[in-house]
């Protein structure tokens, strides 16, 4: 697989489940902070890069596996065994990678999520992005069309991509913050921890 094919493979098979893996880490591994999760996710991508991608039949299970191993490695350094993660991973075998209505839906939702992020970009930034990605112009052509320098286009595009990347990483944190609010079980009671 050449570099571009690898990027596309990762984009298609791994990026859509990144948020899911992040929330899995966050919910199951309460001892992991946001920065720890970021580290683990980034390292998982680096591991993925050196793997034989074409040989991976179940990318989802594979990514979970890689992530789990990385957390275990960290745990060994900290000399603590993260059992919760292990408990959860046992059930991963059950997760099927066959495309079904739900998975189609989640792929679609993922695209819609990206689309909604793009729609919130500042106008110039969004325009550069749309010319490059929707109309398939090169960065040079985008610069000509918009009457700006190539380096300005580059800055717009980098800003757009940064926005997408950080939104993906943070969206899960925010979703989790909402979910993590203890549900009132009784009057004056405490939520569980």
């Amino acid at each position: 697989m050449d570099e571009n094919a690898k990027h596309r493979w990762i984009a298609q098979n791994i990026l859509p489940i990144e948020r899911e893996v992040r929330s899995w880490l966050r919910l199951r591994m309460r001892s992991l902070g946001a920065a720890d999760i970021d580290d683990v996710i980034q390292e998982a991508y680096a591991r993925l890069w050196s793997a034989e991608l074409a040989a991976i039949t179940n990318p989802r299970a594979y990514f979970y596996q890689v992530t789990r191993n990385l957390v275990l490695q960290r745990a060994r350094h900290a000399r603590v065994v993260p059992m919760e993660l292990m408990g959860e991973i046992g059930d991963l075998g059950v997760i099927s990678d066959e495309p079904g209505p739900e998975r189609d839906l989640s792929a679609r939702q993922e695209l819609e999520r990206l689309m909604s992020i793009v729609s919130r970009l500042p106008p110039q930034c969004r325009k550069a992005f749309e010319l490059r990605k929707f109309e398939g112009l090169s960065q040079r052509e985008v610069a000509q069309r918009m009457g700006v320098s190539e380096s300005t286009v580059e800055k717009h595009l980098a800003k757009a991509l940064t926005f997408v990347l950080t939104e993906t990483a943070r969206a899960d944190e925010r979703a989790h913050d909402r979910l993590a609010k203890p549900q009132p079980k009784r009057e004056g009671g405490h939520g569980g921890d």
Binding site: A11, L15, I41, Q42, E43, Y45, A46, L114, K133, L161
Partner: peptide, 19 residues
């Protein structure tokens, strides 16, 4: 962390074609 971050960023960039 940088290598993984770059791979993720490039994959995301490629993935944005699909929208």
């Amino acid at each position: 962390r940088h290598q993984g971050a770059l791979i993720r960023a490039r994959a995301q960039w490629a993935g944005l074609d699909r929208i």
